[in-house]
Design a protein around this nucleic acid. Sequence first.
DNA 1: GTTGAGCGTT
Length: 174
Amino acid sequence: MALRSAAAVAPRSLRRLITGTSSRTLPIISQAIWDWEKLESSTNAFVSGRLFSSTSISSFIPPPLPPSAQQREKPEPSTNLFVSGLSKRTTTEKLNEAFAKFGEVVHARVVTDRVTGYSKGFGFVKYATLEDAAKGIEGMDGKFLDGWVIFAEYARPRPPPEHHSAPPHSQRPY
DNA sequence: GTTGAGCGTT
């Protein structure tokens, strides 16, 4: 569909918006984008043309992103990739196969619901080297897999395993 | 048995 083709070439910040947009809500999004472009052009006129305005443009400019949000946009490089936007029909094998074209995949997994066994629509791909991982992102991020635009980025480090052995302040009876 | 935000069953 045209919407998904647009997603493949859209700036990263817009991709999720586009792929998560049904045709019902598209007019609303289009209106919002049109409004934003209008605002941007008026901002440019204000700056370069030295025009005066009674409205405060600065109130419309988004504040700088907090550190937590920046973390989301620029994850730490890793050999492990988080892949989202997967078709629910995409299997671990297909995932492995697609990413293996760009480097040595040592592990790949589509995450499935434990009880139903169905895909949750995302997965992980682990490459042998950081270089391969970077090539994997370059080669697969924003590309189609089983008809869906997928997103490949560095996976966040997994939470450390819970050691259930010795409590820090364990009291033992004498 | 999906049009969907997300960071995982060893």
